[in-house]
Design a protein around this nucleic acid. Structure first.
Length: 360
DNA sequence: AAAGCGGGGTT
DNA sequence: AACCCAGCTTT
């Protein structure tokens, strides 16, 4: 079996790629220095998330939690608030779990050993390679979506990048071609190339520093790659939510379970509505009484909210209601409008809050 | 191997 | 509407 890299001019490829990166790289906050903790935080934030989205979150996060010790000692409520709106909230809970371990087991120093670093919570194959190469200049592959796209074109790899085992094919290829002298710039250059030049839709091949090395470009097939099988579409759910207040204007809110969707975030009380005979308002009223012992008359709010996740769609119908009597320990807590700012809400419930306030 | 897990930008 | 994004964990 002939390897994918056998007819690549590796030295020349490395040089062309790294030289381009050193000249053209964007100025980004996490490139200010190579502090391993800083690099680590940036890599977690950048998982499935665009650079422009991450920048303000990264600056705020580093201000609030500048070191391993700061993050290890923070309250979960604070770190979720710092992540609010960024999505995939288990990322920050796993990050804190891992950082606590680094604080306790490694004296606060991020281990410069891929095997040890890779055992930490939330550190998968990509993050391991990225942090080890960028922070410690260790030649490990860091294969993300960008790298699979770029290398599928350079080496004309036609395997399905949606399949988990395909990542290993790319990791082996990268092990063959990665610069041992400068793995940090090499890995970053591949990702930068994927972001700026070798883009999904119409790659700018005429600006590409490595087009002479690119087999797909040589055959005019760059638009066909990478190959990715389709994923199935989202399920759609019908939900009803209630903005409940007391007579003084404080809100009744609920903390979501510690696992699953939007774990540990706060929300307005709500339920999925499944009946085809009962009005949604009555179904929600029954739920509020069963779940929280809250007897409350609801009024419809104007407008609905659709919220799209990667794997499902919420269609929300909204109500408001006033009650002063909900038992202690019911699962709902009472917070003032001012205190609301301390709690992390998913964007869907921020939309609910916004819509409610617009109608008051 | 497949599914669960957010949110937003691009085309 | 589909696709993509500096993916990882659980089942």
């Amino acid at each position: 079996m002939k390897s994918y890299t056998s007819d690549l001019q590796i030295q020349q490829f490395q040089h062309d790629l790294i030289s381009w990166f050193q000249k053209e790289q964007r100025i980004l906050p996490w490139r200010e220095n190579a502090d391993p903790y800083r690099v680590w935080v940036s890599e977690i934030m950048l998982q499935q998330t665009r650079v422009d989205t991450v920048i303000p979150y990264f600056l705020n996060f580093m201000e609030k939690f500048p070191t391993v010790a700061h993050l290890a000692g923070a309250d979960e409520e604070q770190i979720l608030k710092a992540w609010e709106g960024l999505g995939y909230y288990s990322r920050v809970r796993n990050l804190q779990t891992a950082v606590k371990e680094v604080h306790a087991e490694y004296d606060g120093v991020v281990p410069a050993d891929p095997e040890k670093f890779g055992e930490l919570k939330g550190v998968g194959p990509y993050t391991k390679g990225a942090v080890m190469s960028i922070a410690y200049n260790i030649p490990e592959p860091a294969v993300d979506g960008n790298v699979m796209r770029v290398m599928s074109r350079i080496l004309l790899i036609e395997e399905d990048i949606a399949k988990p085992k395909t990542r290993k094919v790319f990791e082996e290829a990268i092990r063959d071609v990665i610069s041992k002298e400068n793995p940090s710039d090499f890995n970053q250059a591949l990702m930068e190339l994927g972001a700026l030049i070798c883009t999904p839709g119409k790659p700018s091949c005429l600006l590409c520093p490595v087009r002479e090395h690119c087999k797909a470009f040589g055959e005019g097939r760059q638009q066909e790659l990478p190959f990715k099988s389709k994923k199935k579409k989202q399920k759609s759910l019908l939900l009803a939510a209630a903005v409940l207040t007391d007579s003084s204007g404080s809100y009744w809110i609920h903390k979501r379970p510690s696992s699953g969707l939007l774990a540990n975030l706060w929300e307005f009380p709500n339920c999925e509505t499944v009946s085809d005979i009962l009005p949604q308002k009555e179904e929600l009223q029954l739920f509020l009484h069963e779940e929280y012992r809250a007897a409350v008359e609801l009024q419809a709010l104007e407008g609905t909210i659709q919220h799209v996740f990667s794997h499902l769609i919420w269609n929300l119908v909204l109500f408001k209601g006033v009650t002063d009597h909900i038992p202690e320990g019911s699962g709902l807590i009472r917070v003032t409008e001012e205190e609301m700012k301390q709690y992390a809400f998913p964007v869907s419930h921020q939309k609910i809050y916004q819509l409610y306030q617009d109608q008051m």
